[in-house]
Design a protein around this nucleic acid. Structure first.
Length: 354
DNA sequence: GTGTCACACTCCTGAGGAGA
DNA sequence: TCTCCTCAGGAGTGTGACAC
């Protein structure tokens, strides 16, 4: 201790107090951490081991001692906070982990239930079609993709025979001035009096583009109050088979419209022409049975499809085919021979007369 | 206004450990 | 044994509060 004190005297600046001096100072500090000036002088007098230390040094030592204690307490507090935060962080990490697993599980379950919903929807639509078919004695073989493809192919063959009908009449389009664009065709198949083709025209678009336009056109929907695509099946030739449920407006707006199951088949032919044809699978006959009205012919008219052929000079030739079912009983007897002739012109004349 | 004290911050130095 | 680095602690300095 004396050497440390003498070193202080020699250098006059920095000294290390001896362990005995530090122990004495610590003991006094615990008794009174903040002694007054008088008390410090008293301590120096009462404790010989501190007699070699200047009063100013004692004052500084207490000062630094209080500062260190405060720093230790603050460090201890920060460590405690750090431990609590670490524990909280661990809990939050575990909670986050648990929630992420829960999210994954919910996403998986959502996907699973969506798939089940889709399957149930398809089953319901096909089942409904089958039920409706059975109720109406419609020859729908089965609702499997193979069955629908079989029906679609038959529909395509039937549609093509009608769209490229055996009896073709070139006519001047009503309301148009004579010219190249005003010429259209109306054709009708022999032995199928209800089918008519109309509005053949040339457009400067590619077949696929025309098909997209026509499929979205209001010409498809104008007769429909509602149209739902219940199922879409791709075909090997790049086409699609769509199972549609449609509700039609009542012809005279005096009665609720009828609902139909339709099969829409879009197919690309070998020569590049594109066919969109529709077959009515069944109807539920949910509308009232309207009695015959004199002087009015009863008929149902709905689109059957489009035949879009690529032209050599560019553009596409479009055949829009409407399926018009005249109810023969509504045609007056005097006009029936004319109506039952094989030309659509005769039927148009018949209707015009009526 | 001046002196004193406490506090916070900073600088400096000695002690001690690790490694070449 | 020497060097380098870290740490503890003594001491200096600036600032605000308070009493006179």
């Amino acid at each position: 201790a004396s050497s440390a004190t003498s070193a202080s005297s020699d250098s006059g600046k920095y000294v290390r107090y001896t362990p005995e001096q530090v122990e004495a100072l610590e003991r006094l500090y615990h008794e009174c951490p903040k002694p007054t000036s008088m008390r410090r002088q008293q301590l120096i007098r009462e404790c010989p081991i501190l007699s070699s230390i200047e009063p100013k040094q004692i004052k500084v030592w207490f000062q630094n001692r209080r500062c260190r204690e405060k720093q230790r307490k603050e460090a201890s507090r920060l460590q405690s906070v750090n431990r609590k935060l670490a524990a909280m962080n661990k809990l939050l990490m575990e909670e986050n982990d648990r929630l992420q697993k829960q999210v994954s599980q919910l996403v998986y379950e959502n996907s699973y239930f969506r798939q089940r919903k889709e399957v149930a929807k398809k089953d319901t639509s096909c089942e409904s079609a089958v039920t409706s078919r059975q109720k109406n004695q419609f020859p729908l073989r089965d609702s499997s993709p193979a069955g629908l493809l079989s029906i679609a192919e038959e529909t395509l063959t039937e549609f093509l025979s009608k769209a490229t009908g055996t009896a073709i009449e070139w006519i001047q389009m009503p309301g148009m001035k004579p010219g190249p664009d005003s010429i259209g065709i109306i054709s009708i198949s022999h032995g199928c009096p209800g089918m008519a083709a109309r509005a053949c025209g040339l457009v400067g678009l590619e077949p696929t583009r025309v098909a997209e336009v026509l499929k979205d056109q209001t010409s498809w929907c104008r007769d429909f109050r509602a149209l739902d695509v219940l199922n879409v099946l791709p075909t090997a030739n790049g086409g699609t088979i769509e199972l549609l449920y449609v509700q039609m407006y009542a012809p005279s707006n005096l009665a609720p419209g009828r609902d139909f199951w339709l099969l829409r088949y879009t197919s690309v032919m070998g020569d590049g022409s594109l066919v969109v044809c529709v077959k009515s699978l069944a109807n539920t006959h949910n509308g009232p049975n309207i009695p015959p009205v004199a002087n009015f012919a009863r008929a149902e008219m709905f689109p059957s499809g489009f035949l879009i052929r690529h032209c050599e000079g560019g553009g596409s030739m479009i055949h829009i085919v409407d399926h018009m079912n005249l109810e023969a009983w509504s045609v007056p007897e005097v006009l029936r021979p004319l109506y039952e002739s094989s030309t659509v012109l005769a039927q148009r004349i018949t209707m015009a007369v009526m």
